[in-house]
């Protein structure tokens, strides 16, 4: 397995973050206005169907953009440690169920989501950040998977290994090569989140690899 991505040059980030923050807020503001118009149109029998459909599409496009910028800001905060991890005991069964529910709500494609073996234990982690990373990894995998995406949680001595495996074409060479490809904010955040999990001098890691049959294997390892 190859270690995950190197962080980008932090020198640019402060300036960019400020712009991203303002743009994100403007987009969320626009979203609430589009929503208000949608509601008015939905209440009116005279509203042309084509306009309603176009407005729905505009809503989704703006929502996606705003969420993407929100993710960028999360990455910025993780780098700046403004948003350090909150370590709480998390029952792993509960985590798997929580992640499954959230991923199912965003699932695209026809692959099945299989929650594989989940060790019956409690782990000290940031439940919300880890869930964000796993939901992102699962929904990403679903877009490329053939027939199934599997989530497994295993304990190996003092480490917890969380794996998302799909049966798609696998990661591109540059991704497992450790370079930052465009559009990999999710992987960048997962790498940071894993790294911020520190116990007894040991830090978590993210490893990306392709399985023997070719599918992508995303592994978060936490101390």
């Amino acid at each position: 397995m190859t270690p995950a991505l190197a962080p980008p040059d932090e020198g640019f980030i402060d300036v960019l973050a400020s712009g991203v923050h303002d743009t994100k807020n403007t987009l969320f503001d626009a979203l609430s206005r589009i929503d208000a118009v949608r509601n008015t149109m939905a209440a009116s029998a005279a509203a042309p169907t084509e306009s309603v459909t176009l407005l729905d599409e505009a809503y989704v496009a703006v929502e996606r953009s705003a969420e993407r910028l929100a993710k960028l800001l999360s990455a910025y905060r993780l780098i700046r440690r403004e948003n350090p991890v909150v370590l709480l005991p998390t029952p792993l069964g509960d985590l798997a169920e929580y992640v499954r529910l959230r991923a199912a709500a965003e699932w695209q494609g026809t692959a099945a989501l299989v929650v594989g073996p989940v060790v019956d234990d409690v782990w000290i982690m940031d439940r919300e950040l880890i869930a964000d990373c796993l939901v992102n990894a699962l929904t990403n995998a679903a877009r490329y998977a053939g027939s199934k995406v599997t989530l497994e949680l295993r304990a190996e001595s003092d480490w917890l290994s969380i794996t998302v495996v799909d049966d798609g074409p696998g990661y591109a060479r540059e991704v497992i090569g450790g370079r930052t490809p465009s559009g990999s904010i999710g992987l960048f955040i997962a790498d940071k989140v894993a790294n911020l999990h520190e116990r007894n001098g040991q830090r978590g890691t993210l490893a990306l690899a392709n399985g023997p049959a070719g599918g992508a294997v995303f592994t978060l390892t936490l101390p």
Binding site: P89, D120, D121, V122, I124
Partner: peptide, 10 residues
């Protein structure tokens, strides 16, 4: 008890 495993920190 095994059933209480998720609650060990509690």
């Amino acid at each position: 008890r095994d059933q209480a495993k998720p609650y060990k920190y509690d």
